[in-house]
Nucleic acid binder design. Structure first.
Length: 572
RNA sequence: UCCGGGAUCGUUCAAUGGUAGGACACCAGCUUUUGGAGCUGGUCAUGGGGGUUCGAAUCCUCCUCCCGGAACCA
């Protein structure tokens, strides 16, 4: 695997100029040089607790936490919970669990924007007193009309010039719950002719009689994102406030509030969010997939959610390495999902014990091997890791091999088993196919074979046998359920659709194939949920949480690179 | 149309006025008791036009294309 991880985080990026810096690191270095902040780097990851985290969030999490680590700084976790109607405690728990699983630690710095509601309210009052905010009675629709269009300036609200006293009184009564939802807002008084819509007297407080997951019914007015985020950053003494590109237009407002409030002023930096081929990446679309039954929940192993990837069997290391590898830039990009797959292959290749599993069993009877005899053959657990040791695998007269490893009429370049041909049984003898037995409908149901008893652990001198196949003992093997997961979408860009269709029309109907009765070697008795194995020549698999001692269930994490598939494709 | 961003191999990230480089993918070969892993080599890119300069991916200029923006969402 040639992936260059470049993941050396032991040296500060600031002191290793030979390693190219990403644009965020360059900005940080400028700040360090100019002394803009008289403190160390302090970042934060600010999720809204209204959904599950996905691989795109992992990029942001990794960026914020590893930047802090590289520069010897800190990264906070802050829940951006300013909208009581959408946020739930359940999401807070899952988000924390996912970040921890990824391997990042916010220590005791778990914050909530809702913790700052009193301070935010006081700042709003200050703006009113400074004649920089006013209570507006315009309805939502009227507000939209007054805002203007990209080419025309907006109009001043008729309530724009209320006195400080009236504004103070009205805002207090908004807070006291005297007015129904939507009847009034507090707006910042900026510039209705500003080319940036966010500067055209943006709403900073709205009336919302909702139950908040943390503050309960204490408030019926809630600050907007723009009046919360920068100030929260400021309170926490954040230095670089890293967010995604769509917030670029909000930066002037972010700066305006910090300036007018005369508070610590972090630098907002925007980067491009992650997109992956063969998947979608939005909470709304995930919700559709879950609600309409295309997947079995948020942690379905096909979902690009962190919980889905975890259940699938991805390792946190591989996701972190992936995030480091893809880097960070300001232009939108779509990362090939094979990059992600290669990272998990690379990690699992190093750590996953090898075992043999036969997914589509075909019985083999070895005619020259005695009935009842059992040999314990020695197999290495991981050729990449000698310390993983060896195990024994029972060899008997009747075996199962995979149907795919036999071809009655072999195509060229096929060097597995075929009538009259030989193949190496992994860790065992060379096997020769003598006869093919079929049922009434012509299906191949059994192979009669012989072994060359002088080939255990050594090569024959008179011929060369190239193919190696895996196998299990028919008598000693275990039954297992195997869930073969594939990409959820059958096209690279699921959102590119014909007029009148949506991403659902690109769903891969074969994203899950369940094999109920696969045969696995006895070493897999009593596996535990979460364990990961390589099924030799097949792929990497994890033990699903549905697994029981009687009924092991394995999820395919990712297949092995299959160069036979490529050859078969190219020679056709 | 206005504002804000962006454009380098198929993909992603470099090169910060001085030989356009790496990785993935692809192709060829070596090796192998996983058609796995590993190793070697190869194909492939600066959106376009002008300009500055001995020299431009990089600076200037015009153009083209792409993304985001008019929630009392974040």
């Amino acid at each position: 695997m040639g992936v260059n991880l470049n993941a050396d985080t032991s040296e500060s990026a600031a002191t290793t100029p030979e390693k190219s810096l990403n644009f965020v690191e360059e900005i940080i270095n400028d700040h360090l040089e100019s002394g803009r902040f008289d403190q160390t780097v302090h970042t934060r990851f600010p999720p809204e607790p209204n959904g599950y985290l996905h691989i795109g969030h992992a990029k942001s999490i990794a960026l914020n936490f590893s930047l802090a680590e590289k520069y010897g700084g800190l990264c906070n976790l802050r829940f951006d919970d300013t909208n009581p109607s959408k946020e739930e405690e359940e999401y807070v728990h899952s988000i924390k669990e996912d970040i921890k699983w990824l391997g990042f630690d916010w220590e005791d710095r778990e914050y909530y924007a809702s913790d700052y509601f009193d301070q935010l309210h006081d700042w709003a009052v200050k703006l009113i007193k400074d004649r920089l905010a006013y209570v507006c009675d315009l309805t939502l629709e009227e507000g939209r009309e007054y805002r203007g269009t990209p080419t025309e300036a907006g109009k001043h609200s008729p309530y724009r010039d209320r006195s400080v006293e009236e504004n103070l009184d009205l805002f207090a009564r908004m807070k006291a719950g005297e007015f129904p939802d939507g009847t009034r807002t507090l707006k910042a008084k900026i510039d209705m002719a500003h080319p940036n819509f966010h500067m055209r007297d943006p709403v900073i407080y709205r009336i919302l009689h909702g139950h908040h997951h943390r503050t309960g019914d204490d408030w019926c007015i809630y600050p907007m994102y723009d009046f919360t985020h920068g100030q929260s950053d400021s309170i926490e003494k954040i230095t670089q406030s890293i967010c995604t590109l769509e917030f670029e237009n909000h930066r002037p407002l972010y700066d305006w509030f910090c300036d007018k409030l005369e508070i610590h002023h972090p630098q907002q930096i925007e980067f491009a969010r992650l997109n992956l081929t063969y998947t979608v990446m939005s909470k709304r679309k995930f919700l559709t997939l879950v609600n309409e039954g295309y997947v079995n929940g948020w942690d379905d192993p096909r979902m690009p959610t962190i919980s889905g990837l975890r259940r699938r069997g991805y390792t946190p290391e591989s996701i972190r390495n992936f995030c480091e590898y893809i880097g960070v830039a300001k232009h939108n990009s779509v990362v090939d999902v094979t990059i992600l797959e290669n990272h998990v292959r690379e990690h699992l290749n190093a750590i996953a014990p090898r075992v043999m599993a036969v997914l589509n069993p075909l019985k083999v009877v070895i005619e020259n091997y005695p009935e009842g005899k059992v040999e314990e053959l020695q197999a290495v657990n991981n050729p990449e890791d000698e310390s993983a040791g060896i195990r024994s695998v029972p060899f008997t007269r009747e075996l199962y091999i995979d149907h795919n490893d036999f071809m009655e009429e072999p195509v060229k370049k096929y060097f597995r088993l075929a009538p009259g041909k030989e193949v190496r049984l992994r860790y065992g003898y060379i096997l020769k196919c003598e006869d093919v037995i079929k049922n009434d409908t012509g299906e191949i149901i059994e192979l009669r074979c012989t072994i060359d008893p002088d080939t255990l652990g050594k090569q024959p001198t008179d011929r060369r046998v190239k193919g190696v196949i895996h196998w299990v003992s028919a008598e000693k093997s275990l039954d297992a359920e195997i869930r073969l997961y594939d990409r959820l979408f059958s096209v690279e860009h699921p959102d590119k659709v014909e007029e009148g269709q949506d991403f659902r029309s690109n769903i891969n109907p074969d994203s899950l194939e369940i094999i109920k009765h696969a045969k696995v070697e006895p070493a897999l008795r009593a596996v535990k949920s979460g364990e990961r194995y390589q099924f030799e020549r097949v792929g990497y698999f994890s033990v699903d949480q549905d697994s029981t001692d009687d009924h092991p269930v394995f999820n395919r994490i990712v297949s092995l690179r299959d160069s036979w598939a490529r050859i078969a494709r190219n020679t056709r």
